[in-house]
C-alpha cells in the first residue's frame, strides 16, 4: 500500500473513533433500558456550544472540559426524565418520538442563542502535522483518539470493577431480578442516561476544534454513529470501536477515490446491509443459556 492510502485510512479512522464514541453512548442507555436518545446528536452539538461559550468567559481555557461534560450529564438526565421515563413506565415506544422532539428543541434553542452560523472552536493544541513513518497526523487528531479511548476505558472499568457498575450490568442482564436484589432499575437507567450525556458531550468537545461548531454540526455524525451501533450490535463496546475505525477509513477512501459527494454513502449502505443480513449486529451475541 502506498502512503496516500495509509494516510487516508489513518485520518478516516480518527473520525471513526468519534462515531464509535457516540455509538457507545447509544449502547449505554440501550443496555439498561432498551431505549436510546435519538437526540444524541443535538446533545453533542449543545455541549460543544456550551464549551465554546465557556472559553469566551475569561475563565481558564480547560475549564470548558469539565463544564461541557457537566452540561452533558445534566442534559442526559433531563432527556431521561422528560422524554423517556414515562414512556418506559407505560411500556410504550413513546420515547422514540419524545427524544426526537427534544432534539429538535435543542436545534431551535441553539439557533436562537448562538445563531445559525458555524463557528471555529479555538484550541491551543497544535495543528501542525507530525510525521509517523511517512503518515502525517496532527497533535489535535491524537488528542481526539486519546480522549475517546480514555473515556471508554474509564467507563468499562467502572462497569467491571465497582459494585454500582456490576449493578448496571445486572440491570442490563435481567431488570426484574436486579430489582429483587434491591437495585433500583429507575436509578440505574438515570445513571446510564447521565453517562450517555457525558460521552456525547466529550464527543462534541473533541470533535469541534477539527470541524466547527454549528446547530447542525452533529446531524451527519449521529447518523454514522447510529450505523456503527447497529452494525456492531448494541451490546459490544469493543465492537463499536472496530466498526467505527472501519467505517471512518472506508468513508475517507470513498471520498477520495469515488468523490467527496459519496462520503456519507458507506455508513448508510452498511446500515442497510446490517439490518437486512444481521439485525443483532456483528458483535451482538445470542444470550448464553444452559438449563
Amino acid at each position: 500500500m502506498d502512503h496516500a492510502v495509509i494516510q487516508l485510512i489513518v485520518s478516516g479512522a480518527l473520525m471513526g473513533l468519534v462515531y464509535a464514541l457516540v455509538a457507545y453512548g447509544f449502547q449505554l442507555t440501550y443496555a439498561t433500558s432498551k431505549s436510546i436518545n435519538f437526540g444524541q446528536g443535538e446533545l453533542v452539538m449543545l455541549s460543544a456550544f456550551v464549551s465554546l461559550t465557556l472559553t469566551n468567559t475569561g475563565l481558564p481555557y480547560y475549564l470548558m472540559i469539565p463544564g461541557g461534560l457537566l452540561f452533558g450529564v445534566i442534559a442526559g438526565l433531563f432527556v431521561e426524565r422528560a422524554g423517556v421515563r414515562l414512556a418506559l413506565e407505560q411500556k410504550s415506544e413513546g420515547w422514540i418520538l419524545m427524544t426526537i422532539i427534544l432534539g429538535l428543541f435543542g436545534i431551535s434553542a441553539a439557533e436562537n442563542i448562538w445563531g445559525r452560523d458555524d463557528r471555529p472552536f479555538p484550541t491551543p493544541i497544535p495543528t501542525e502535522p507530525i510525521q509517523f513513518f511517512g503518515v502525517s497526523i496532527t497533535p489535535l487528531e491524537i488528542s481526539v483518539a486519546v480522549g475517546v479511548v480514555l473515556i471508554m476505558v474509564v467507563i468499562e472499568l467502572f462497569k467491571r470493577k465497582t459494585l454500582l457498575g456490576k449493578a448496571f450490568e445486572a440491570v442490563s442482564a435481567d431488570r426484574d431480578a436486579a430489582e429483587l436484589m434491591g437495585i433500583s432499575a429507575t436509578r440505574t437507567i438515570m445513571l446510564s442516561y447521565g453517562l450517555s450525556g457525558l460521552v456525547a458531550a466529550l464527543a462534541g468537545i473533541l470533535v469541534s476544534p477539527i470541524t466547527t461548531v454549528g446547530p447542525t454540526m452533529a446531524s451527519a455524525l449521529v447518523l454514522k454513529a447510529f450505523s456503527v451501533a447497529v452494525v456492531a450490535g448494541l451490546e459490544s463496546g469493543f465492537g463499536v470501536v472496530i466498526v467505527g475505525l472501519f467505517l471512518g477509513s472506508l468513508e475517507s477512501l470513498t471520498s477520495f477515490y469515488v468523490g467527496s459527494g459519496w462520503r456519507e454513502a458507506p455508513g448508510l449502505v452498511l446500515l442497510i446491509l446490517a439490518l437486512a443480513i444481521r439485525p443483532t449486529g456483528i458483535f451482538g451475541k445470542a444470550v448464553i443459556r444452559k438449563v
Binding site: L163, L164, A170, A177, M181, I183, R289
Partner: peptide, 24 residues
C-alpha cells in the same frame, strides 16, 4: 434468573447490594 453474563461471584456480591459500598 441469574445474571448470565456476570460471574458467579459477581452474582453473589450483587445479592448483598443493599448493604455494600457502591464503589470500592
Amino acid at each position: 434468573k441469574v445474571f448470565g453474563p456476570l460471574s458467579v461471584e459477581d452474582n453473589l456480591l450483587l445479592g448483598a447490594f443493599t448493604r455494600l459500598p457502591r464503589f470500592f
